[in-house]
């Protein structure tokens, strides 16, 4: 059923982002001129409009800024996963990413929890997901 979930859509902006996730790496776009780091790939820096774009590997950790436990899925492909967690994560590098919290204890997540990236297969590609990285490793 997971095959029916949206697969990464690769375009000219996001080609490098999705190529990296395919190798289980989360990358961020960095401005070579002002140093601004962002999650959503784009042609220019949203701060200074520089076209000098570079890529940097994220360390893959962050904290939960907020989350919701979804009971009514927007698409049939997610229906059997209900209830599941949608969250906004503040990455160690600063940018915010939307994701699911998956794995042990996901439904017990609270704001401020530390999380680490993992990757979920979607067809030929992979999407970044996050799991709890609580002290003691969780159960």
């Amino acid at each position: 059923m997971t095959g029916q979930r949206p697969e990464p859509f690769v375009n000219a902006d996001s080609e490098i982002y999705w190529a990296a996730t395919k190798e289980s790496r989360l990358v961020l776009q960095e401005c070579a001129d002002c140093g601004h780091v962002d999650l959503m790939p784009r042609h220019v820096c949203p701060k200074c409009w520089s076209e000098n774009r570079t890529w940097t590997d994220a360390v893959g950790t962050g904290t939960v800024h907020s989350f919701s436990i979804v009971h009514r899925a927007p698409l049939p492909a997610f229906r059997e996963d209900c209830p599941y967690v949608v969250a906004l994560i503040d990455l160690a590098e600063g940018p915010r990413i939307m994701t699911n919290i998956v794995g042990d204890g996901a439904l017990e997540v609270v704001i401020g929890d530390r999380v680490e990236v993992c990757f979920e297969d979607r067809g030929e590609a992979k999407v970044p997901q996050f799991r709890l990285a609580r002290a003691g490793g969780g159960s």
């Binding site: 697969e7 990464p8 996001s14 959503m40 989350f67 919701s68 927007p74 939307m98």
Partner: peptide, 29 residues
């Protein structure tokens, strides 16, 4: 499903994020 399209097609929709879930995250914060 149409309203789900309000989420970013590449970076939000792959996570089954609904409009209520966006506002739920705002509410929780």
């Amino acid at each position: 499903a149409a309203l789900a399209a309000v989420g970013h097609p590449y970076y939000e929709q792959p996570y089954g994020a609904s409009i209520p879930s966006f506002y739920a995250m705002i509410t929780r914060r």
